[in-house]
Design a protein around this nucleic acid. Structure first.
Length: 261
DNA sequence: AATGTGAGCAACCGCATGTAA
DNA sequence: TTTACATGCGGTTGCTCACAT
């Protein structure tokens, strides 16, 4: 016996939404909010739709801050970078792109970006999986370096994924500008970078050219951390504190990793 | 003009996860 | 602790439209 369906498929309308239904849902949400109960919402809003369908329609299409199409090179890079590390976790990837939904990002990937990336890969723009240091179980390391970054940007080292606060994915200052103290210890770092309470994708932190030593420039004392950082180079962390915690511990990290999951 | 084909995208499906009773 | 239910998520489907033949 399977679980009960979320609504009676025979009695609710399915398929494309009409402009009238859109307006009904939009005006209901405008007046009452989502109310924390999508199952009850259709009845309250006078819609003959499944609650799940209403939720999907609102989240993917009617929400006022939604953007459709017009993906920028920077957004492409974020998608490729995250996909190469964490795979098809579309909701996480979309959360780094303001105004984008998981469905939209997924569609964009499946219809355009994947082809673009594969074409670029076949032209030698990416490291091949065989030569990549990342063995990917969920992500695809072939896309890790797409699109090829200008050298100056690589040297800058750090990329912030704090998209919800701004429409631009602004790079944070290079390590040197953050000051040595910020990187002298996990404890100090967690305080110094607490303000950067942002998601962290270690390969981007490491950056091209400089290598892990850019992050851990303190000689033998931190040799262990360097090794750990290399181990974690295919991981994604929700914030700097978790990254430091993982680097300082032998335990399996909380971050999403290809090589360690 | 008619037909075939492929791309793009909205929507659905079913499983996983979270949470309240 | 268990159970039931709501929500979240990723994979997939199917419709529409543009373009080629």
């Amino acid at each position: 016996m399977g679980r009960a369906p979320c609504c009676d498929k025979g009695s609710v309308k399915r398929g494309p939404w009409s402009p009238e239904e859109d307006e009904q849902l939009r005006s209901y949400v405008r007046r009452h909010g989502i109310g924390g109960n999508w199952i009850a919402l259709p009845q309250k809003a006078g819609l003959n739709r499944c609650g799940k369908s209403c939720r999907l329609r609102w989240l993917n299409y009617l929400r006022p801050d939604i953007k459709h199409g017009g993906y920028t090179e920077q957004e492409d890079r974020v998608i490729l970078s995250l996909y190469s590390s964490i795979g098809s976790r579309w909701s996480i990837i979309a959360s780094k792109l303001p105004g984008r939904t998981d469905n939209d990002v997924k569609n964009y990937w499946n219809t355009k970006l994947k082809k673009k990336a594969v074409a670029a890969a076949s032209n030698g723009a990416f490291a091949s999986p065989a030569t990549s240091s990342v063995t990917s179980s969920s992500g695809d390391a072939r896309f890790a370096a797409y699109p090829p970054q200008p050298q100056a940007q690589q040297q800058q080292g750090l990329i912030r994924f704090d998209a919800p606060r701004s429409t631009e994915l602004a790079p944070v200052p290079p390590v040197a500008q953050l000051g040595g103290a910020a990187w002298a210890s996990p404890a100090a770092a967690s305080g110094a970078v607490a303000a950067l309470d942002d998601d962290v994708f270690l390969p981007d932190l490491v950056g091209g050219g400089g290598g892990v030593e850019q992050l851990f420039p303190y000689g033998d004392f931190y040799a262990g951390l360097q090794d750990r950082a290399l181990e974690l180079s295919a991981c994604y962390f929700p914030n700097m504190a978790e990254m430091w915690g993982a680097a300082a511990s032998d335990a399996k990290p909380q971050g999403l990793c290809n090589t360690l999951t």
